[in-house]
Amino acid sequence: MKEIVEIIAKALVDHPENVVVDEKEEDGATLLELHVAQDDMGKVIGKQGRIAKAIRTVVKAAATRENKKVTVEIV
């Protein structure tokens, strides 16, 4: 799950080397925190959060397959 966020983020940003995803477990749910370079924030969020939403949608599909609950946050 973590890798999926990484793969997508790296494909979109200008500084893929700065892409880091932290994985945290909270009450049986997985929280993925996506970190990117400051000037790449727009590239993973998008206008009105459209890109962030697309990333979440894809991750959600992957999570459903594994019966997991996953949230993605961009920090």
């Binding site: 979109l12 459209r50 890109i51």
Partner: peptide, 12 residues
């Protein structure tokens, strides 16, 4: 989901 994949594919 397909649209989300298509969207990130276009961006990439």
């Amino acid at each position: 989901t397909l649209d989300a994949l298509q969207y990130v594919a276009n961006l990439a």
